[in-house]
């Protein structure tokens, strides 16, 4: 049995989610190869090759793959897919965009956001925003799966796989990249961070969000936000934690001024330790918090900052 992991990256750096995918793939197959598709992305392949448990890194370095457009990547995946009994990608916006397209052309089902592999045919995945877990058996000869990276440990980084360049035909005229507006923060990436500080509507304004940023910087943490805070324009959508945003599971999640709508809880309730700071003692966030502190965040946050200095 062989599994193919599709590397998550930005042409420069391998996203650590890829190492979690390798861990998941090793539960399905003895041999795990990684496919890196991108442009001038050799450093990514080098990094992928160091992942423990990887047999081979296939490197499809092609300008047409630069922006990870599904129309360009799909034929490349199909070109190498033969012989693999499982194809895995992260349940990132890139993975979710790509894999259903691949699955449809292989005429198989796709399993989304798998959090546990029960056996080579059976998978557990959240449904209804994580309010229920479905155990699903697939009858397909090839499993096409997006994996929730935070549910699997990252594979160690002491491997030495071979890198095999491959030529792929990725040129297409259907879709064209125009521009992007990226969040170039120096803080850790939200999904990979060990500590996350998230702010909600309780902050009251975009300016006040600086309180969250200051605490996050004190802790070396990533910043997150509730949907209400994003909708109110306090921060960009890429920081939204929740069912329709990012799913995170850090060691420490600090929710500040977040009431705890089901939508938000779906994105963070797998965190190891949850801290809630809110002035409303009845806020639902306290039901999932390991440590709840009722009070005025405008007093508590500066105090925390001082205590952590």
């Amino acid at each position: 049995m062989k599994a193919l992991v599709i590397a998550e990256h930005d042409n420069k750096t391998l996203n650590p989610a890829t190492r979690s995918l390798v861990t998941a793939a090793l539960q399905l197959a003895d041999t795990v190869d990684v496919l890196v598709m991108g442009a001038d992305c050799n450093p990514v392949a080098q990094s992928a090759a160091k992942t423990n448990g990887v047999a081979k890194v296939l490197l499809a370095d092609n300008p047409a793959c630069k922006h990870q457009l599904a129309e360009a990547l799909t034929p490349a995946v199909l070109q190498v897919a033969t012989g693999y009994s499982a194809i895995l990608a992260a349940s990132s916006t890139t993975g979710k965009n790509l894999l259903p397209r691949v699955a449809a052309l292989l005429d198989v089902a796709q399993l989304s956001e798998v959090v546990r592999i029960e056996d080579k045919d059976t998978f557990t995945r959240p449904i209804y925003a994580g309010n229920a877990l479905a155990r699903v058996r697939s009858a397909d000869p090839v499993k096409v799966i997006t994996i929730r990276a935070s549910s699997f440990e990252e594979a160690a980084v002491d491997g030495n796989a071979v890198i095999e360049p491959i030529a792929v035909s990725a040129v297409q005229q259907m879709s064209r990249f125009v521009s992007e507006n990226l969040n170039n923060s120096a803080r850790p990436q939200l999904e990979a961070a060990k500590t996350v500080v998230s702010g909600g509507r309780g902050l009251g304004s975009a300016e006040n969000f600086a309180l969250v940023e200051n605490l996050a910087d004190r802790l070396g943490a990533a910043i997150g936000a509730s949907r209400a805070a994003v909708d109110a324009g306090y921060v960009g959508n890429e920081l939204q934690v929740g069912q329709t945003g990012k799913i995170v599971a850090p060691d420490l999640y600090i929710a500040v001024g977040i009431s705890g709508a089901i939508q938000h809880l779906a994105g963070m309730k797998e965190s190891r330790i949850i801290v809630a700071i809110n002035k409303d003692p009845e806020a639902p966030i306290f039901q999932v918090a390991d440590y709840g502190l009722v009070g005025d965040l405008f007093e508590i946050l500066p105090e925390l900052e001082k205590l952590l200095a």
Binding site: S92, V178, E180, N181, E191, E238
Partner: peptide, 9 residues
Amino acid sequence: EVDSGEQVL
């Protein structure tokens, strides 16, 4: 809306 921000196609 992509993980890293916004992308226009």
